[in-house]
């Protein structure tokens, strides 16, 4: 059984956005700080004047491991757990999908695009796949 997170009132907008295919971040209207995870105030200046906005979904691969000990409910093959750096600034933990789960395929700084993995009718988790090269 894959882990299903418990949504809170303060994060519900994030998960509803993910269900629509949007990666939602927040930005402080007073100091301009862009932050994640979601909370209804700015963790830099404590202002409650914060707005939710849809991120570009673009990111780069900051660092990762390839987990050879999958938890119960996961496929047995090793898979990546990564820190991705979002184009808007915040970093987040995620998985890199739709590419071989090998050191050769997972190059640091590679461009990534968000996609969403359905865990339940309510929970779509943001994960990242290699970005298509701009032509």
């Amino acid at each position: 059984m894959t882990h299903l997170p418990l949504i809170t009132p303060e994060t519900r907008h994030f998960w509803e956005g993910a269900g629509r295919g949007e990666l939602l971040l927040q930005q402080c209207g007073d100091c301009g700080h862009v932050y994640f995870p979601p909370r209804p105030f700015c963790p830099r200046c404590a202002s409650k004047n914060v707005k939710v906005f849809a991120a570009s979904g673009r990111a780069t691969l900051y660092s990762y491991v390839i987990n050879h000990r999958p938890p119960p409910g996961w496929p047995k093959e090793p898979f990546s757990i990564a820190i991705v750096a979002l184009a808007e600034g915040p970093k987040m933990v995620s998985n890199i999908v739709e590419c071989p789960q090998t050191p050769d395929a997972l190059a640091l700084d590679m461009p990534l695009t968000v996609t969403f993995k359905k865990l339940s009718d309510e929970i779509f988790v943001p994960v990242f796949r290699p970005a298509e090269r701009a032509s």
Partner: peptide, 13 residues
């Protein structure tokens, strides 16, 4: 909400 869904299985991952 933001770490557990990614399949870490202990401090090593």
């Amino acid at each position: 909400q933001f770490a557990n869904p990614y399949g870490w299985s202990g401090a090593a991952s």
